[in-house]
Design a protein around this nucleic acid. Structure first.
Length: 217
DNA sequence: GCGACAG
DNA sequence: ATCTTGTCGC
């Protein structure tokens, strides 16, 4: 059983491996979304990875994995709760994506090692962190128009608040692994074609919910 | 002690 | 995360 202190030690040991520069395929062909769904009245969780054609956003493949959660939700130790199911789902994919967008923070984290960073370093793959709310840091003067950006400071810049639709609450983009913040921010905006959240996240959430329902039948 | 706290 | 439907405010 992993203790809280041991989990923090793992983060401290791995965070130096994060690469915050662009090391990704030139034309990106396949982009992935990753999300985990929770059962309301049990300890079951379902992780899903959905693969999309980068240019058409058509679904190429989906893989999911249901299991009992093995670690509690503790702010700052989120990856230890969600990553096991995501790794199992990832192993079931028929092909690998060029890039993954995670539902959660990358280095916009108290120890600079959130879910997207942990997942990226573990897979040695480019990963973007895109959270719906912030974990830490502050921002100001975010414009109201789609595409507006404000740096998330803690006290140095750890990510961006990004307005993905006019007058709608921003999302929080940060480096996970093998990508720069400007590139990550642009890609997230590009994935937000119609809603606040990237299509990758919306679809992963949808398929994770289906996997959970199917597992309970 | 108080508030904040990814999902 | 899960609570969910109609309602308040711009």
């Amino acid at each position: 059983m992993l203790t809280e202190d041991a989990a923090i030690a793992i983060q401290e040991a791995l965070k130096s491996q994060v690469i915050a520069t662009d090391i990704l395929p030139d034309p990106i062909k396949i982009i992935a979304g990753a999300d985990v769904e929770y059962d309301k009245d049990s300890n079951l969780i379902a992780g899903s990875i959905v693969l999309l054609d980068y240019t058409t956003l058509q679904v190429i493949a989906v893989a999911s994995h249901c299991m009992e959660a093995t670690f509690p939700y503790i702010p700052g130790l989120f990856s230890f709760r969600e990553m096991p199911s995501l790794l199992r789902a990832y192993e079931k994919l028929p092909v690998q994506p060029d890039l993954i967008i995670c539902d959660g923070q990358g280095i916009a984290h108290q120890r600079r090692f959130g879910l997207a960073a942990h997942f990226g370093v573990t897979l040695n793959k480019p990963v973007i962190g895109c959270g719906k709310t912030k974990l830490c840091g502050e921002y100001q003067d975010l414009g109201a128009a789609r595409g507006s950006i404000a740096p998330l400071m803690d006290p140095e810049q750890i990510g961006n608040a990004l307005r993905t639709q006019d007058n709608i609450n921003p999302v929080f983009v940060s480096v996970g692994h093998k990508i720069s913040l400007p590139t990550a921010t642009n890609i997230v905006l590009q994935m937000c074609t119609q809603y606040r959240l990237p299509e990758t996240t919306r679809l992963a959430d949808h398929y994770a919910r289906l996997a959970l329902l199917e597992h309970k039948k």
